[in-house]
Design a protein around this nucleic acid. Structure first.
Length: 272
DNA sequence: CTGTAGACCTGGAGGC
DNA sequence: TGCCTCCAGGTCTACA
């Protein structure tokens, strides 16, 4: 269930692992999106985890000689266990630390990824090299967005979900941010006014920040056998609310397909 | 270069 | 209960 707020919440929940030493690596099912490198147990044994960072929806576990890169895909979840619980069906990967802590990856759909990057290839790797700015950074502002949109004729929702434009805006938050900005998801990207870009940048930052705050309230769950971040409980304006009344105007929320993804909006609040 | 469709994979929900 | 279809929070890759 990972959009950017959950990935960041996951990262915060894993911070107790910083400074700890890897005792062993368990690869139970190596066939994720790409194969989990079979050398990981040798590469990581007795290595100290220096820090855990995030770029877009990737988690980067920094070790002395390189980075363990992890993506949660559509259904991935990381749990921090304080003991060796028996693995279940979709628990594909464990990082076991010398103090007994276990970081476990569960990913039923196996769209996730676990990769290794040597230090000299971290910035150049194709998965990381072409990413746009972080949405909560100052680099993502109205001038930047307006400039980027000038050559794009596709729908604004599709545009803001492109990680080369800006990272971390997934299907839920694209819909929610566009509603808050009162912008129709199908509006051609190059027709947004500067004022619309300003509002959209603000609502993207606002929506993600609120979701992050909601997810952050459930960090204690990460030490249970089952991680359960709480941001999903927040109330959405449009996402998943087809046929229900708009919280602002009462108009019924509609659902269309855009770029093969369900797209929710209020035709009254988000006119063309 | 831009844009779109297909691909990867499992499980849950709903219809019959 | 069983079978079928559709849908799901991502994003890389191929091709027009």
């Amino acid at each position: 269930m990972p959009e950017l707020p959950e990935v960041e919440t996951t990262r915060l929940g894993l911070l107790p692992l910083e400074g700890q030493t890897v005792a062993s690596v368990e690869i139970r099912f190596p066939t994720l999106r790409w194969p989990i490198p079979s050398h990981l147990p040798d590469t990581l044994a007795d290595q100290q985890l220096q820090n855990i960072q995030r770029r877009a929806k990737y988690l980067l576990f920094q070790f002395k000689h390189g980075v363990l890169l992890l993506h949660l895909g559509m259904s991935g979840r990381l749990c921090l266990l304080d003991d060796q619980y028996p693995p279940e069906k979709h628990d594909h990967f464990d990082l076991v630390f010398s103090n007994g802590h276990v970081m476990r990856l569960r990913d039923p759909r196996r769209f996730g990824a676990v990769l290794w990057l040597d230090n000299d290839e971290v910035g150049k790797h194709t998965l990381l090299a072409n990413l746009g700015p972080e949405p909560l950074s100052d680099d993502f502002d109205a001038a930047y967005l307006f400039g980027q949109l000038q050559r794009k004729k596709k729908a604004i929702k599709t545009a803001i979900m492109d990680s080369q434009l800006v990272v971390g805006v997934g299907n839920i938050y694209a819909a929610e941010s566009l509603f808050r900005a009162r912008t129709h998801p199908e509006q051609p990207a190059n027709t947004l006014s500067k004022a619309q870009c300003q509002r959209l940048v603000e609502t993207i930052k606002q929506t993600l920040t609120e979701a992050l705050a909601a997810g952050g309230s459930s960090l204690r769950d990460f030490f249970g056998a089952d991680g359960n971040p709480g941001y999903f409980q927040q109330t959405y304006y449009v996402y998943g609310r087809t046929g229900e009344p708009c919280r602002e105007c009462g108009e019924l929320i509609r659902c269309i397909r855009l770029g093969q993804r369900s797209t929710f909006f209020c035709a009254q609040c988000q006119p063309r």
